[in-house]
Design a protein around this nucleic acid. Sequence first.
DNA 1: ATGGATGCAAATATTTTGCATTTTG
DNA 2: CAAAATGCAAAATATTTGCATCCAT
Lengths: 140, 140
Amino acid sequence: VAATTHRAMGTSRNTRQRSVIVALLKETGEFRTAQQLHAELRGRGDQVGLATVYRTLQALTELGEIDAMRLPSGEQIFRQCSSEHHHHLVCRCCAHTVEIAGSTVEAWTERVAAEHGFTEIGHTLEIFGICAKCAEAAES
Amino acid sequence: VAATTHRAMGTSRNTRQRSVIVALLKETGEFRTAQQLHAELRGRGDQVGLATVYRTLQALTELGEIDAMRLPSGEQIFRQCSSEHHHHLVCRCCAHTVEIAGSTVEAWTERVAAEHGFTEIGHTLEIFGICAKCAEAAES
DNA sequence: ATGGATGCAAATATTTTGCATTTTG
DNA sequence: CAAAATGCAAAATATTTGCATCCAT
């Protein structure tokens, strides 16, 4: 885990709470809800308001510094990701996530949409499953 | 618009409210939120409780008679669809929807997931854009 | 008649927002 | 010091649920 303090947050300021949130996202690496992140911070003694967690996650998402997606249930989940466009393979059980590059899919969606006269195309694609570790654990 | 009353809803009963909800979904053909459907019914004089709309949509979804998905904003939207698995190309502007068969994508997600040791795979893929009609309208 | 379905209102759950206060630059 | 960020609680959404009543079978 490296040093480089987080910059690039527009004209933002460097507060303690923002630092701990960013740090937690970095060390976690998996998708978590705002509430989970908040509880985790509370648990370790980092006092941060829930609203601040939400506001920070939203800001980071808009800046493209983290990825946000929704579970089928509707809750938003967040994760620190690489910056380029990609999709996720998420374990339904432990939320373990693998980033997937999807140039094939990108090309496909563009083509299909264009065929139907659609423009300004965007898409969402997420794959859910059970990871090897959880599948194994379930057998005991 | 055909006749065939809706059967197949388990051991369910044939109530007036269920009929009008199913009928509305059939004639609408586009994705709508539960609230929109409820308002529409109210508007045309069909008295139905919001809770019933939610309960019915949930039941129909579980039976696979309609498709449910979520907007990026998190609300659930519902639509009467063909039964086979497919994806949607949705207009961000007017919610006009085109069903897309995606065997290519299906095969791709299966393969990618398997490569990472994941099982019991499922996925979500929706394409959003602006349809030709809306793009044209926007130019005026 | 009887159990499933409904309506309504209250309860949940999640996320957002107003505003006084604190903090950073 | 001024602008931005925070905390808290209230508000706004979206959806679910308890329960008395109603109605299809």
